[in-house]
Design a protein around this nucleic acid. Structure first.
Lengths: 215, 215
DNA sequence: GTCTATAGAGTGATAGAC
DNA sequence: GTCTATCACTCTATAGAC
């Protein structure tokens, strides 16, 4: 099936262009040029622009789902830190996936509802981490009912919009995964018990201090 | 000057349509229809689409600048709470202003740089609030160098993307200014001194408990 | 200041040869 | 599976009458 190859090339090129220009500003012509095929050929593989966007969305949806699935039965601090690293890579690789969410909602509502489910799952997963680590004695009793849910939602917003926000502010160069993770851990830190703080200092702090060294 | 009137009508209609459909999806024809004038007349008042977007941007830029200017010489907690209410109204009124930031950056770079300055000012203002209230004994010594700057940046992201994010998640109905302010105060609360906590409970907590009552 | 009419440059999608 | 050619349509911007 040689056509799978071209199909994949189209998807890859589309992702690249979507990232650079945004969904609404990418022309079918551009995609065709990018991989050296004709617009007619493009139409052979995808009946229209929406079909391309759908295919791209499915690919990225699955990649995001994989990250979500790394949530384990016993989610310790290291586990969360690893997941944060993965989220960072994902969002940096596909910023349009989040920045064009509103565009998708407006133009392709069906795709959007699938994502909403994923977002809810992500927030609830963060919330469960609080609950689990509370049972382990690392996190304080909830100081006020509903607080940890609010914090979980805040963490989601920060995970999702921190990287795009830095793109917008034009400080891409200085941004790195350590600053990102530091900022998320800032959200959790105030709610550690003494034991939680100790475990954090021992297991996580060293990971945040690495200079972005090679190897 | 009857033309000022039409000019204003064009700007108002544009804002409405930009909010609904996003910058890239609004047609000049649409704007003209919205206020019952012809596209030709539109062209008389604004030489092209970019000129309209510029005018809109200037209006909103000034409105945002006004909110920023309410920062006082002695910024106490109530002052910040008031400013938060104003930000909330602003962002809810003009969500596209933030969500289409990337679009603006891509298509109209000159406008964008003006905004970047404003964003920096906003973050630095939040940071100054920490410093000032630390000197008043309401905020703890910075537990780790740079922390309050990180928190200030997180607060900015949350202020800016919380409302749009709720739009995207489709929970507009349930969102209200109290939840919004509660979420921002969550960011500050862990760093209050005992005195800070006391002042917060006395002055701010009552404001967060109001049901969204009439009058 | 406002209109109608239209030019001119895309843009998405299709038909049909190879 | 890929191409060229082209249609039908949309959008911005302009020209010129009123």
């Amino acid at each position: 099936m040689a056509d799978l190859n071209t199909k994949q090339k189209i998807i890859k090129a589309s992702i690249r262009l979507f990232n650079e220009n945004g969904l609404a500003n990418v022309r079918l012509q551009q995609i065709a040029n990018e991989i050296g095929i004709s617009p007619g050929n493009l139409a052979y593989h995808f009946r229209n622009k929406e079909a391309i966007i759908e295919a791209v969305d499915e690919d990225l949806f699955e990649e995001a789902a994989e990250i979500l699935s790394t949530y384990r039965i016993f989610p310790n601090l290291i586990d969360f830190d690893n997941q944060l690293s993965k989220y960072y890579s994902f969002i940096q690789k596909y910023p349009f996936y989040f920045l064009d969410m509103l565009e998708i909602q407006r133009q392709y509502p069906e795709m959007h509802s699938k994502r909403q489910v994923q977002v809810c799952k992500m927030i609830s997963q963060i919330h469960k981490r609080f609950a689990f680590n509370q049972s382990r004695g690392l996190i304080l009793e909830e100081p006020r009912a509903g607080l940890y849910n609010e914090i979980a939602e805040a963490i989601w917003v920060l995970i999702t919009f921190w990287v795009p926000q830095n793109l917008i502010r034009g400080s891409e160069a200085s941004m790195n995964v350590l600053e990102f993770k530091q900022m998320i851990w800032n959200q959790v830190y105030p709610y550690f018990t003494d034991q939680g703080q100790a475990e954090f200092e021992q297991l996580i702090r060293p990971l945040l201090k690495q200079r972005s060294a090679g190897s």
